[in-house]
Design a protein around this nucleic acid. Structure first.
Lengths: 337, 337
DNA sequence: GTGAAAGCGCTAACAA
DNA sequence: TTGTTAGCGCTTTCAC
């Protein structure tokens, strides 16, 4: 990499002249500016990032801590974050907590050495279960703002981007009721998570609002045994169910394929609504109708919030909670009108 | 963040004393070391990353350029890279080319300002189609080594991590032949890519090696119309096919679900082998038998190669090509023995 | 209009 | 054993 020093030497001017010229300072003569810029272009000069950061005490880099990159929701959020970050001139350093408290903690600590200006993160499962959240406050105390998305820690005062999980499920239930469904089940493999609990609450709320038949019918899928077997057994034991709402990324697709396999006609016999994205929802036959979380928008919003927070440090001290709208994308696992 | 300066002031010693003490220099007295370390711990001192990088001209950060994070293969590779990077003490700055040449170029240029020590990347689709590869050489020329994985540019002299795509497909075909399959089709939605071409070549090679019936039967899925319709029509027009090899991430799962939907029994009537990972392969009923690319291992290997390259700059000047072994994970879309 | 010098936080050669 | 100083690459204030 070429440095100002080298350019200055070759041009027989001082380092500061070169610096000013490249920044179009009006202290510098037109002719000099031209000379400097030409040589800089010739050598493909770029100001050294580390030097700039050291000087300005800003890195234009944000740390992103993702619980599980293999979950498509998080992959999409990351996608959104990266897109907006590029637009706003930030780089992102990505860390994976792999749902572990220790790794999450480590990531925050490791980057709190001047590597990043702030964090965007979704809380790891273990962290949520143990409700161990000191490391978040430590980071904030060090002047590194945090924006949390999806899985948030309610006790931490920071900006947050979420969806209204309760409302989303209620809307889905409502859509099934409109189709004439009477016995709607709820299946979830994420009841440990804050969002899992909210979605279940949404299901209960929806049942309460239904005129008839408000007996909950819930399958909590656990990792210990084969999920497909759990669904098969659930379907066999609940012959009357005619609607399914799936709380996580994949169980809706599974439910359709398994129900078909068992001889049910989808959506004639059972309607299914899930949380998967376009790609996964297209893997079932018929394709899954989904609650659309707008994951990319969540990522973009989070990045924008962090940017604002970084730009006016003294302003808007109150944490913001941004709620991203959800909507339902109708495919063929429901009876559409 | 606390600095050496502040510690020095508070301890009434010089900055360099503090620095040396923290680095366990034997120039410094035991007592002083202890005093310094205690205060440093108290203030949670961490050496400023930017200052360190500026001084050492090393960032311990690698730039990762991924064509499409929503593709699970890439997500898994990224996962592997991050895991190994953490182990080796690197951070990763993630960029997405979104399959676009311009974005890929931009990412390399943007990070070639001292932000990273080197790159790990998989070539964008557009880049492969246009075969425009100057930006790679530019980066390498600037002293930033590149490790390419999966989709590599054969004209670039750099370390590479790939799988033997031809062999992988041959093995899959062989597995189907062993089952007694006679009419094996190949479906792909990635024939633009280097790996797509290799996998098709593998299919042709396998056919050539078969005793009977070496007429190729290929479906190239394009994005213009509904992929499911293309598969339906393909199945309807080729009633005799009894085996399918899918070259990409999702079409194997689709094929199973569609074939079931059309009344075929899987694997009795048709055996299917695909390229999907565990999660996606479990979304079909029955679950998809897959060629396992060991994506995580690819990521880890790439990171290790880059690390080696960075550590001994003068040594092993010849580019290395590392071939990661594939294997077949048998699930229920094939007749297992 | 141009240059010298200080300083961001750190390490290390050299001096004391 | 500890301190002084220079320098990594850059911006910016202040002198000229």
């Amino acid at each position: 990499m070429v440095t100002l020093k080298q350019l200055a030497k070759e041009l027989n001017v001082s380092i500061s002249t070169v610096s000013k010229a490249l920044n179009d300072s009006d202290e510098i003569g037109e002719h000099t500016i031209k000379r400097v810029k030409e040589l800089a272009k010739f050598y493909n000069y770029k100001p050294n990032k580390m030097a700039l950061s050291l000087k300005s005490n800003k890195t234009n880099t944000v740390g992103v801590v993702i619980p599980n990159i293999l979950n498509r929701f998080f992959a999409k959020v990351l996608f959104g974050i990266e897109k907006e970050a590029t637009k706003l001139g930030y780089n992102i350093i990505t860390c994976m907590s792999n749902e572990l408290l220790t790794k999450e903690k480590q990531s925050l600590q490791l980057l709190a050495n001047g590597s990043v200006d702030g964090f965007i993160l979704s809380v790891a499962e273990e962290t949520q279960i143990k409700n161990n959240i000191d490391h978040f406050n430590t980071a904030i105390g060090q002047g590194l703002p945090i924006v949390m998305f999806d899985r948030v820690a309610s006790d931490i005062k920071c900006d947050k981007v979420i969806i209204d999980d309760i409302e989303a499920i209620c809307n889905a239930a409502h859509a099934l009721v409109v189709e004439g469904r009477k016995r709607i089940a709820f299946i979830s493999s994420i009841d440990d998570l804050s969002v899992g609990k909210l979605r279940e609450a949404g299901y209960h709320k929806a049942l309460d609002e239904m005129v008839t038949n408000n007996e909950p019918l819930i399958l909590k899928i656990n990792d210990n045994t084969d999920p497909q077997q759990q669904i098969i057994s659930f379907l066999k034991h609940n012959k009357k169910l005619d609607g399914i709402i799936a709380a996580d990324n994949v169980s809706g697709v599974m439910a359709i394929n398994i129900a078909s396999y068992l001889g049910y006609k989808i959506p004639k016999d059972i309607s299914v609504i899930g949380f998967a994205d376009e790609t996964i929802s297209k893997l079932s036959m018929p394709q899954l109708t989904t609650i659309n979380q707008n994951a990319e928008e969540i990522g973009k919003s989070a990045m924008r919030l962090l940017d604002k927070r970084l730009k006016n440090e003294e302003e808007f001290p109150e944490p913001l909670i941004k709620v991203i709208k959800t909507n339902i994308t109708y495919r063929d696992s429901t009876i559409n009108n």
